[in-house]
């Protein structure tokens, strides 16, 4: 909490201070969001005054019990939804609409079933009017980077396993050359083994490309494994609970993180935070 406040202070000064622009990739300030269920339903507070700063090149995981609005927060950062009040600032400018500077990876992969794999990866490039040959070259590079064999280029998504589909989703996000990756429970729809393999690959890819990543997850291990810092949201309404520094050596894909002596400690700390919020608020509606 303290760290969050201090960060906010530094972010507040960034408008005048060019160094601030370098340090902070994205910041969200005082985000408030309510949903109204049905036409005349009572408005439900989902996010209550949430602020955060994401440093350039940092891997931030957002974790929270269901109903904490973690996905909503990410969608507001992506501008897929608008906040009732508060602001998202990227590169020193307020964010008002989705941008290719922030590439999204979806839990449901979001691949177009009628496009083959390479065309799916080329999609954001074609949208921006990149020439076909160039787009193909970029797409090939990214597919190779995420470990997808070239023979699948002409396949359609339904012919691929879930893990492979999410590799394509990741390649598509990387193809945009965005500085920021927004990932909404990207491995949530995958089985446990596949998830573990993809987590390792994601760690490697992120280290190689030095992207700024915001990852929403409900999986504590995933958060500890991948993140530099973990933002723990409280439930119903979501507030910033604590920001946990994950003080484990990098690059993490080169050793068995779970075997590191500090790992259980960090994990238990995050779990304790989460558990206290879950019991505090009792039953939560799913988000």
């Amino acid at each position: 909490m303290r760290e969050n406040l201090s960060k906010k202070a530094s972010a507040a000064g960034q408008g005048e201070n060019p160094d601030g622009v370098d340090a902070v990739a994205i910041s969200a300030r005082n985000i408030v969001k309510t949903y109204t269920i049905g036409r005349e339903g009572k408005p439900m507070l989902v996010l209550d005054d949430v602020s955060l700063d994401v440093r350039r090149g940092e891997f931030l995981a957002i974790i929270g019990p269901s109903g904490s609005g973690k996905t909503t927060l990410l969608r507001i950062i992506a501008s897929l939804e608008s906040a009732d009040s508060g602001q998202v600032i990227a590169q020193g400018r307020p964010v008002t609409q989705p941008s290719a500077e922030r590439a999204m990876v979806f839990q449901h992969f979001g691949l177009f079933p009628w496009k083959n794999i390479i065309d799916n990866v080329k999609f954001p490039l074609k949208i921006r009017g990149v020439k076909d040959a160039e787009a193909t070259a970029i797409a090939r590079d990214q597919l190779r980077r995420v470990g997808l064999k070239p023979q699948f280029e002409q396949s359609h998504p339904h012919q691929l396993s879930g893990g492979m589909q999410q590799r394509v989703g990741l390649a598509r996000a990387l193809a945009t050359d965005a500085d920021v990756l927004l990932m909404d429970e990207p491995f949530g729809a995958l089985d446990a083994q596949t998830r573990e393999v993809l987590q390792g690959d994601l760690a490697r890819v992120c280290a190689q490309t030095s992207k700024t990543v915001i990852l929403v997850t409900h999986d504590i291990d995933e958060a500890v494994l991948l993140a530099d810092r973990i933002l723990v949201l409280t439930a119903g309404p979501g507030r910033v609970g604590e920001i946990v520094d994950v003080d484990l050596p990098r690059p993490r894909w080169e050793y068995d993180v779970r075997a590191h002596p500090k790992y259980p400690e960090v994990r238990r700390h995050v779990w304790d935070l989460l558990r206290s919020h879950i019991t505090e608020d009792g039953a939560n509606d799913g988000d």
Partner: peptide, 8 residues
């Protein structure tokens, strides 16, 4: 969900 319809 209601959110989806709203979005839509």
């Amino acid at each position: 969900t209601a959110t989806d319809t709203k979005r839509l």
